[in-house]
Amino acid sequence: MDFLLDSLISSFMLVASLDRELFSVVAVSLKVSITSSLFASMIGMPFGFFVAIESFKGKRMLITCLNTLLALPTVVIGLFVYALISRRGIFGPFDLLYTQKAIIIGQTILIVPVVATFTIAAISRIDDRYRKTAMTLGANRFQTIFVIIREARFGIAAAVIAAFGRVVSEVGISMMLGGNARGFTRTMTTAMALEYDKGEFTLAVALGIILLSVSFGINLLFHFFQGRTGQ
């Protein structure tokens, strides 16, 4: 138990001392995760919306495929993107590997299925009568879409929260595509993996506690956002 207490105190001290390295790590983590969540939302939400609203052949199969992609291991994505952007790969000349951009690309691929499936679930749950009522009341296509989205906003917000949680906590992609370079691509999770490798467990756990606190803060923001629109 001493060990956990030590870690807890250390994490407080790290925050209190305004450790520059710590802030750089947290900043890189947040920047990368938020950007990839945004990109994934921009792709996954319209896609999920389309799949949920339209009926077409193979829809169920597509949803099953999307659900399968939820289990896509980060190392697989890491390898795939690595092969493409490595110096010897197709996109080699862009010098993307071991940059924050590379992590964002990988993480976006990771969570597009998350956003899409959550959106599908959220939209499908909305009673079809909303759509019909809106249309009988003379709503045009866009107004109808707006009504559906407004009804499904909790589920859609959950999609973004889940996606953000997935990327801020993943380590495979960040390590493989970011390279854990100090001050450039070192994120909270890769820093933790490193401290573990170095045998500095206390610091690793301290970072873990900080990661959880930061995530808690982000989720609080979401909570207020959801609450406000709920009224």
Binding site: R87, L97, Y98, G179, A181, F184, R186, A191, L194, K198
Partner: peptide, 19 residues
Amino acid sequence: YMSLGQGMGKTITFADEKQ
């Protein structure tokens, strides 16, 4: 100066990639 915090093989790969 890139401090990686990774094993030797990874560091060599990184150095090779970034020349």
